[in-house]
């Protein structure tokens, strides 16, 4: 159970809905993952088109929380307008706020992100900012009104996994009471388990599941990894050490000469 902006979610996995081989596989993958929320977007509809209607019906049938995004927005104005349009269509004040700053890495423009976050928080949005692991930016986002932070662990779709574990650990340590969701860059269930073991509250991923040979199987694997990582964190992980420590009792050991 995790609480985000006053909403309790049973699962700590949030799943993207893009790039699946078919709508049916998307639906099966979401169910197999036991995700509690899915991300969606808004795109141009063709005249007379019904694509949006079909997709929206599918998403509604899943009966999960909807987290619309502002993916592809490169300016504050674009992101703010897209967020407002999303609120109208999807009927939620949740918004995954993306303000992209670089075409190659898709890393956030953190300056624009903070500005957009402030505008949207003031307008009543529950902002989920896609950010970096920079602590100062995180502080600014919290000052702007964000109550959840979503740092990347690697570039979107890269599947690199956590490339700076020290920074993630530091973020967790600096913001012990803020829900932290690792968003972007996860490639394997073990990556998800690792960040959950670090104490992150949830993960958000898409490509690693959607582009797997078997998206449904991979979705199930990620769901298990998130649960395993969380339970491991709560159970108290053993700190690593340089020297060996025998696990079998040495007292009572037989001596043969």
């Amino acid at each position: 159970m995790i609480e985000l902006y006053g909403t309790k979610l049973p699962s700590r996995l949030l799943l993207g809905t893009a790039q699946y081989p078919s709508p049916a596989i998307l639906a099966d993958a979401v169910k197999a993952s036991c995700a509690s929320a899915v991300t969606v977007s808004l795109r141009r509809e063709m005249a007379g088109g019904k694509g949006g209607e079909k997709f929206w019906s599918l998403i509604q049938s899943l009966r999960l929380h909807i987290l619309p995004n502002t993916a592809g927005c490169h300016s504050v104005k674009e992101a703010v307008t897209t967020a407002k349009m999303a609120r109208e269509v999807f009927g939620t004040n949740w918004i995954k706020l993306e303000v992209i700053g670089n075409h190659d890495t898709l890393q956030p423009d953190v300056f624009g992100l903070v500005e957009a976050a402030r505008i949207l928080c003031d307008d009543g949005f529950a902002v989920f900012p896609y950010t970096t692991d920079d602590l100062v930016v995180a502080e600014r986002l919290l000052e702007a009104g964000c109550r959840v932070l979503m740092p990347w662990c690697a570039p979107i779709g890269s599947a690199l996994g956590p490339v700076n574990i020290t920074a993630l650990r530091s973020m967790r340590g600096h913001f012990p009471d803020v829900p932290l969701i690792v968003d972007a860059g996860l490639g394997r269930p073990s990556h998800a388990a690792l960040v959950m073991e670090l104490g992150f509250d949830a993960v958000l991923l898409n490509t690693a599941v959607a582009k797997a040979a078997d998206p449904v199987g991979m979705a199930r694997a990620f769901g298990k990894a998130v649960d395993a990582g969380r339970e491991a964190y709560r159970s108290g992980l053993l700190e690593p050490r340089d020297l060996a420590v025998p696990s079998t009792p040495t007292i009572g050991r037989a001596v043969f000469q």
Binding site: L42, E45, K84, F90
Partner: peptide, 27 residues
């Protein structure tokens, strides 16, 4: 943004740029 409830009264003028969006897959 122009709310759905405002469309009937929203006057268009020459040169306006209109965006019409609908739900789509997203990550």
């Amino acid at each position: 943004l122009v709310h759905a409830t405002e469309r009937a009264l929203f006057q268009l003028k020459d040169g306006d740029r209109i965006e019409i969006l609908s739900p789509m897959q997203g990550g």
